[in-house]
């Protein structure tokens, strides 16, 4: 019996489902960072706004990377529905703390897919995610560095404006 299915698709459907979930998560991250950019613009943190505009773009690139992987492997990529984007933040510190929280969630989700792919012997998916594992290390590190800078600078007096100016160091 000719194996049409295996000839048409080179990953497991369980990986495909999880990757579709990840597509949604990256889209959600992109939309969340766009909301943060909006908040920063409206509250006078223009450098931070720039930082989040860039982050939003990067998250969309992550999403497209996974989307294209599903195309390449013969899967069924699903264009995500993105809802429930928070636009309310109590301070710029709150914005960056939420960012770190969000990135940690994304890291956990990616690790979970790697684990699952390994369990079911889906080597293509496992290797594909190598890049994402390392990317998450970088992203978490960036936000942690910014939070450290915030801590050192302090939020009193001109602190907030100094914080915003220094965010420029993390925009390549």
């Amino acid at each position: 019996m000719k194996d049409i299915a295996r000839q048409s698709m080179s990953i497991k459907v369980e990986s495909m489902d999880l990757l579709n979930g990840q597509i949604k998560m990256e889209a959600h991250a992109s939309a969340t960072y766009l909301a943060m950019a909006s908040w920063c613009e409206q509250n006078g943190f223009f450098t931070s706004a720039k930082f989040f505009f860039k982050q939003a773009e990067e998250e969309r690139e992550h999403m497209m990377k996974i989307f294209n992987f599903l195309v390449d492997t013969g899967g069924n990529p699903i264009s995500p529905e993105v809802t429930g984007i928070n636009h309310d933040y109590s301070s710029i510190v709150d914005v960056f703390e939420s960012t770190l929280e969000h990135e940690v969630k994304v890291t956990k989700s990616i690790h979970n897919i790697v684990k699952k792919a390994r369990e079911i012997g889906d080597f293509a998916t496992e290797r594909f995610l190598d890049w994402f594992v390392m990317e998450q290390v970088e992203e978490e590190n960036t936000i942690r560095d910014i939070l450290d800078m915030i801590e050192v600078t302090g939020t009193e007096g001109v602190g907030l404006q100094m914080i915003d100016n220094q965010v420029a160091n993390w925009i390549e």
Binding site: A5, R6, M9
Partner: peptide, 9 residues
């Protein structure tokens, strides 16, 4: 999908 070899579940 299990019979088709595309699912491990």
């Amino acid at each position: 999908f299990i019979s088709l070899g595309l699912s491990a579940e």
